[in-house]
Design a protein around this nucleic acid. Structure first.
Lengths: 333, 333
DNA sequence: CTGAAAGCGCTTACAG
DNA sequence: CTGAAAGCGCTTACAG
């Protein structure tokens, strides 16, 4: 292992000079700087991450906490992971992936041992059991998903209420009077996935204002139950002219289900939904939809987290709801 | 920050005694050990990861290198990530996720700075540009995917040749004489995804031995091209009685395509494929298939990597091909 | 069974 | 513009 002392010796300067040349934290004469750079390249020197972390109390690593629930939709989760990793890298940070079942313990483990400078929490629930551990940690955090109590927390999420209103309005404006809503599975509600009821309740409320009839149902998240439940729901409401699908697994399965039923969109049924734009690469999703943005959400969370790391007392906590945007793909009439 | 000196002071012993109590690397009297444990719990002490890494030259972190190509199938990739992270955790390691575009530089960066004790490489290609950086690294590696030159490398992959033979034999034994093969997209071949041609070439060879006619085609990886290409391929070979799909995106899209075409499996067409068992949770995949095993593959790779870390000179390099297993789901006749 | 001390490889006030 | 030295928080031979 070539270390900073080797470089210093090769150049004939002190270790501190090499260190300052590395960090730029004090002026170095052009000549010594160049000789130092040359020696570093020559010897193939790289700063030892552990030593630097020990000296500076900064690891340049962020923890990413996720839990792969059964109802999680793999493509969505992967998109979050990639977006967060990329955003972090752009700011000079690496990502420590934590998928432990016991998130609270994992947070305690990586923060108290100083393995990370901050933490990103995915899939935050209403009463997220990981939050107490987070509050005790020295390091700041950024959440994706809305907890009940947002005090002192930086939170990022889609504006699901707004998205629901946008979609209900869209159907209402087109003249639909009876619609079906396919929500996430019941156990998403049970475990506190606030996005599920935030969307549903806002949709129901808006529909009531419009005098619309809405049949709200839990969808499923795993095949073959997804198809079965979609068929059962559609069977039960043959007179409905529109459907709002707020359920990744269900919207992915919908095209095949509708083909099998001989239902033509939008002639026989209008369909609107809510999913990341690039799901369309993996699935055939020709539906008018509000675009959730795992990329944007992940990126904003990371940026805010890094801001906090750099300036721990940098302003009040933020709760940011991404504004929903509707993309019309002609699946409504 | 409470450190080991604080614990030592609280108990009235030396720092080394606390350290040895922590590691168990030398006998400690029961009484002192208990008082140390109590003090640790009391003060909420946790070993500082950076300091330990510096002292031991071990980080207990593994690097996981992946690149999300356009042709990558999200559910498959996520499964690898989760399997590897879980397997690592069971052995006491955390995962540093690296998704950089320039894998070689990233390897150089995390290994030379000693951020990781070893590296897992996903999606290894025939002439993988990351391998030179790997050979230069102090840390050992485990590859998932077969490179041209496996010297000194621990490599894990499915036995794609065996899988191809198994599927060809299966169709042949049922009396099929003309079959279609849907391979990964052309650019997977171009960039050196050896699994693509290993499967195809073995299938063609076996078919020739049997006197079967095989129409081999590149499939696509992104919608809507996936459906379009499947339809074109099926149109072109209406007389074929069986199809082998070696392409995640295509097999996921196949049920909808066949419904649309009015093709009933296996009455009109026999279908066999190759995909991870639990794709069936996300997609409706009622097809007889060889089960690829991202979980098993990832786990074996991690276990071997950790073995190497613990015993750097521990035996010759291994190239392990997982034996293919056929699950009959009745999609052939 | 336990302690004093060197060392891991950095950074950064302190001095000049 | 540069150097000598303390310190970050551990581990582990060396001694007893």
């Amino acid at each position: 292992m070539v270390n900073i002392a080797d470089v210093a010796k090769a150049v004939g300067v002190s270790r501190s000079t090499v260190s300052y040349a590395l960090s730029g934290n004090r002026p170095i004469s052009r000549e010594t700087r160049e000789r130092i750079d040359a020696a570093i390249a020559d010897l193939g020197f790289t700063v030892n991450a552990g030593a630097r972390a020990l000296a500076t109390s900064q690891t340049m690593v962020l923890g990413l906490l996720l839990q792969f629930h059964d109802d999680e939709f793999p493509p969505a989760m992967l998109q979050y992971i990639l977006a967060i990793t990329t955003a972090a890298r752009e700011l000079g940070y690496d990502i420590l992936m934590i998928t432990d079942d016991h998130g609270a313990e994992a947070i305690q483990r990586i923060t108290s041992s100083n393995m990370v400078d901050g933490v990103v929490l995915l899939d935050v629930t209403h009463e997220d059991p990981r939050l107490p551990a987070l509050m005790k940690a020295r390091q700041p955090a950024a959440l994706v998903g809305l907890p009940r109590d947002t005090d002192e927390l930086d939170v990022f999420d889609l504006d699901f209420e707004g998205a629901a209103r946008l979609l209900v309005d869209h159907l209402h404006d087109l003249g639909h009077r009876e619609i079906v809503l396919v929500s996430p599975p019941r156990h998403v509600f049970d475990r506190g996935g606030a996005y599920a009821w935030r969307f549903r309740d806002a949709a129901l409320e808006r529909a009531a204002q419009h005098g619309l009839t809405v049949h709200a149902h839990y969808g499923e998240s795993q095949q073959p139950a997804v198809e079965r439940s979609l068929n059962a729901i559609l069977d039960a409401h043959a007179q409905a002219t529109g459907v709002i699908v707020h359920n990744d697994a269900s919207i992915a399965a919908l095209p095949a289900v509708l083909r099998e039923r001989g239902t033509v969109v939008p002639r026989d049924l209008s369909v609107v939904s809510l999913y990341p734009r690039n799901f369309g690469r993996t699935f055939l999703l020709p539906y008018t939809a509000v675009e959730t943005s795992p990329d944007g959400l992940g990126r904003e969370a990371v940026q805010q987290l890094v801001r906090r790391i750099v300036a721990p007392q940098g302003g009040p906590s933020v709760v940011r709801f991404i504004e929903p945007e509707l993309t019309d793909r002609g699946s409504t009439a």
